[in-house]
Design a protein around this nucleic acid. Structure first.
Lengths: 129, 129
DNA sequence: CCTAGACCTTCCAGTCAGTGTAAGGATAAT
DNA sequence: ATTATCCTTACACTGACTGGAAGGTCTAGG
């Protein structure tokens, strides 16, 4: 299977698949003409990566997850620890962004949004508290 | 005032202040010896940028906000429009990350996290749905 | 006057996870 | 044979900084 079909099957851009090969996450075979040849196991691996990235895992973490996935004597506790750390990161981000939204919403609500120059948002940003 | 004191007053790393000058957001004066000289208005401007960045505005947006701040005949409606778009971005991010967390939490809960190799998290990532 | 340490400067490279583009080779359909 | 669509590599760029090297300046103490 060529890269285009692989891309369709794992829902990743071709460029991204080449990049993942560059950084050593996948090693599809090569045909005589230099074309990459993707088989079923490459697609499974790429989909695994895509899903892990979709949960926000860093490339470094994905590497760890793949290492565990490839290791038949892994301990699921180790996987769970990675997941826990990632959950914490997601929750941290959520609270950060949620705080930003609240602050911005307050400024937004205080701003008249009319044709005048006076603006509570700019005032809020400029204030030397 | 030298850059170190400026950095303290606006709560930004020195490196970041130099970067903001590089990209044209601030233009502190220069002394005879080549050192930057920050005055009160530079600090206000840097704090403005820091606060806007803290609300998640992109550098591009910050540029727009500064342009409006500098323009005495601005319409506050324009500022409010920027804020609205930023609020929408924050909410989009929140829902994305919230979805990630939910999915990951489900896998996390299903994983035994013991000394065995069987792992619901890896299975969830590997499944070819 | 000299020196040590703490400032300051510029410039270049690296981060993360890709994405865009150019130049060129291979294959498939007509 | 031609055209269109694939495929390849290599390099540059993104955002928003951050780190480090190499070198100039300033201040305090001896």
């Amino acid at each position: 299977m060529n890269i285009q079909d692989a891309a369709r099957l794992c829902s990743l851009p071709r460029k991204t698949i080449r990049y993942y090969e560059d950084v050593g996450l996948v090693t599809p075979g090569r045909r005589g003409n230099g074309y990459r040849e993707f088989d079923r196991s490459d697609i499974v691996r790429l989909s695994f990566i895509a899903r892990a990235r979709g949960l926000g895992f860093s490339m470094e973490d994905v590497r760890g997850l793949l290492r565990l996935q490839d290791n038949p004597v892994r301990r699921s506790a180790e996987v769970k620890a990675l997941a826990k750390s990632q959950l914490a990161k997601l929750e941290h981000k959520l609270s950060e962004i949620s705080k930003m939204r609240e602050e911005l919403q307050d400024l937004f609500d205080a701003c008249l949004g009319d044709e005048g120059a006076s603006c509570a948002i700019l005032d809020g940003l400029a204030q030397t508290k």
